[in-house]
Computed example of a mutant assay.
Amino acid sequence: MTILAKDAAVLMDVLANPEGAWSDQHREALEKHTLGGHTFAIVSELSYAADPPAEAEALSIFQSAVGVLKDAGANVIEVSIAPIEKQLQAVTSCMSFRHGVRKYLEGRSADVDDPLDAFETGNFSPQAREAFAYWVSKDKTNCPRYEEDSGRRAVAHELESLMKNTGADVLIYPTWTFPPATRERAVEEYRGDNSQVLAPVSGLPAISVPAGRFESGLPAGLQLMGRRGDEALLIALAHAFQERTGHFHPPLYRGLPAIDQQP
C-alpha cells in the first residue's frame, strides 16, 4: 500500500519485473493519461443508491470528487450493477488462507509454519482476533484458481461488458459510504466498505485514492476500478486526481525518492 499513486507506479514496475528486467510501463503511464477525455461511471448501488444509504458527509465528499473529475474535462455517467446482484452474492470465499500461508512459509526462516500456531499463542493484534479466528477456522486445500473459478470470471465478464457497453473507462464509487473505523475501536466501529464488493470478487484491478477528510479528521477515499490489464491506467488516473486535489494521507507523507535512471 502506498499513499501516493506515483509511488504505486514505481512499486508495480518493480513487482512486475522480478527477474530484474527493468520496465517503466507504469511510471511512463503517469504522463500519458489525464482526467480529461476519460469516462468515469458512478456505480449507483455503491454511491447514491447505497444500502444502507450513504451518510450525508460521505456523499458530499464523493460529490466533490466527482466535481473535480468534471472540472478536469472528464465525462461522468451513472451505471447500475443491479442485473448482476445475484451473481455477486453467489460468489463465496474459499477458505484457503491457512493453506496459502503454510505454502508461503515453506522453506523460509520463520517462528511459525502455520498461522493457526500464531493464533493459538496470541501472536496477533487484538483488533484482528475475530477476523483471524474466521480465516484459520477451516483449511481448504482445493480452492480453484481464478482461471478455473467460473463464478468470479462471470462477474468479471459482466463488469467489463458494462464498461464496454456504456463507454466507461473506469467505474468509480466511494471507498466508504460512512466514516471508517478508528484504530482504537476498529472492531466496534467497522461497518464494512465498498473495496470488498466488486474487486476481490471479480479479480479486476482497482485502486483507492484519498478524496478528502470527514469533519472528524478521518480519511475518505475514491475507488477506481478497470478492466483486466488496466493497472497502469488506474494508477495514472489516481495520480492525476491527487495532483489536482492535493489530497494525501497522512499530510506529512513524503513518498519515495525520485528514480531518474534504471537501477
Rank of each mutant, 00 (worst) to 15 (best):
M1E: 04
I3K: 14
L4Y: 15
A5G: 05
A5P: 04
D7T: 13
A9H: 04
D13V: 09
V14Q: 13
L15K: 14
N17Y: 03
N17T: 14
N17D: 09
P18Y: 05
G20S: 11
S23I: 09
H26T: 12
K32F: 03
K32P: 08
T39E: 01
F40N: 00
F40H: 00
A41T: 01
S44H: 14
Y48K: 12
A50W: 04
D51T: 10
E55D: 11
E55K: 03
A56M: 05
F62T: 05
V66I: 15
V68W: 08
L69K: 03
D71H: 09
A72M: 07
A72N: 06
V76L: 07
I77K: 08
S80P: 08
I81N: 01
E85H: 14
K86S: 15
T92I: 05
T92M: 10
C94Y: 12
R98N: 14
G100C: 07
Y104C: 04
L105K: 00
L105M: 07
G107R: 03
A110M: 09
D111P: 05
T121P: 09
T121I: 14
N123P: 01
F132I: 01
F132Y: 03
W135E: 07
W135S: 05
K140T: 07
E148H: 02
E148G: 03
D149R: 06
D149W: 13
R152K: 12
R153Q: 09
A154C: 02
H157G: 05
E158V: 06
L162Q: 03
K164C: 04
G167D: 04
A168N: 00
A168P: 02
V170N: 00
L171W: 03
I172N: 02
I172A: 01
Y173M: 14
P174E: 09
P180S: 11
E184R: 09
R185M: 06
E188R: 00
Y190F: 15
S195L: 08
S202N: 06
P205Y: 09
V209E: 07
P210E: 07
P210Y: 11
R213A: 11
R213V: 10
P219E: 11
P219L: 13
A220D: 04
A220G: 14
R228A: 11
E231Q: 13
L233F: 03
L234K: 02
H239T: 01
F248C: 09
P250V: 12
P250F: 06
L252A: 11
R254A: 15
R254I: 08
L256C: 11
